[in-house]
Design a protein around this nucleic acid. Sequence first.
DNA 1: CCATTAATTAATCAACTCGTTAATTTATCG
DNA 2: CGATAAATTAACGAGTTGATTAATTAATGG
Lengths: 238, 238
Amino acid sequence: MQTVSGRRGTLPASPAKPKPKRKGPGRPEGASGVRETILDAAECLFANLGYAGTTLREVSDQARVTQALINYYFGSKYGLFEEVFLRRGVAVSEERLRNLEAVRQAGTASVGDIVRAFLLPTAALRTSEQGRHFLRLQARLHTEPPHISYALRDKAYGVSTERYVEALQEAMPHLSALQAHWRITLMVGTYLYAFSDSHRMEERVPEGQYQADDCQSLIEQVTGFVVGGISAAPQNLA
Amino acid sequence: MQTVSGRRGTLPASPAKPKPKRKGPGRPEGASGVRETILDAAECLFANLGYAGTTLREVSDQARVTQALINYYFGSKYGLFEEVFLRRGVAVSEERLRNLEAVRQAGTASVGDIVRAFLLPTAALRTSEQGRHFLRLQARLHTEPPHISYALRDKAYGVSTERYVEALQEAMPHLSALQAHWRITLMVGTYLYAFSDSHRMEERVPEGQYQADDCQSLIEQVTGFVVGGISAAPQNLA
DNA sequence: CCATTAATTAATCAACTCGTTAATTTATCG
DNA sequence: CGATAAATTAACGAGTTGATTAATTAATGG
């Protein structure tokens, strides 16, 4: 589709623009990329303002397109939201499954192996601005009303999370099914919060000790906590 | 403009009216209780739909008052939100401080003591429907945009959380200040998620094993996980 | 080279948003 | 009693909201 033939010589009344970014209506040459631009803008805004708090006009402004174009591409506001979330959500889920498969084939998986296999795909997202937007969006999705969140969460993460419960039961055979579910659930709650920047440690920790962009330290803190929590003795209530 | 003062005068010698619920305009006899009714309705809706997703009309409908009455009592939508959150938030925070003081005076506080002192006030809220609404609202507040959430979170929980960091450092002197902050932060993330019903274990756990209203089991699972996470051996980092 | 189709815009729409105002009803107090 | 203040309602208004439509431009395919 990338016919890179030169522009047509006859330019009606517009001045000669060497700029490849043509503005205005009309079918663009090749892929315009505007679709991804809209998704990026929406990802940022949905993450910061929530589903109801985001307006399509804000999205269109930030993406520098007209608002009608969003409905043209995604049909509706919810259609946009769906695609924003699933575009990264399914990728994360698939990577988790691949990671789990890898540690399983390498022998008996320890709790640490399982936790790292689960956390690494999302931890990697923290290295980019857009990735952090998605992580905030994801944390937010879990608090959105069911009719907005349930179907999406299930579609993206339903299967892979179930596999991790099974793997944990193999690693800790003395855990009941209910306990295994609980610990995976608590892991999810912990990392959602820790990776979403919705906490405010920056303001509470003595000067300069906390580096918000210290990704390595973040992963270690969270992994240590989660492994400790999952590995705790089942009736550890001293 | 409008008097937003709180408590009205003392209820006069109540003449034991059989029907204290008068409908229509005019000053009611004694305390009408409509203020709390509005707060309860708003608590439920803010929890389920978020700040932006809740309309004052829905609140007024559910509270069975006219929409203008909300502005009469609370000034603005945000004023209502503020009062909804703080009404229980400060109570929880104060109870946490009292609990911490109690375990400290009883001798050296263990990690389990600290965690239970922190979690019990919110766990108790799960026994009532309105309390569970508040817990969802609270979890949601942490994902709302800063201009909505930061001031409120700090006002309600700023001091008490800081005290718990100090207590944890006493209980685990080998932890650095940064690590202590992290572990308290991760405890918050974990319990916010676990107590807010934003997970969906009901649908994933084998039949009947999960009792959503089994408050005791919930507390045990979360407490065990958090104590294990906090007590985990700190990876060798500064 | 012309018909078709894809991409884009401006303009518009009906519904809904929060907040305000004037009016009304009643309790309370001097 | 009568004045005042409190509580409540109906109605409205200015501004947004998500979505639709008709028109416009250009690439593509036969």
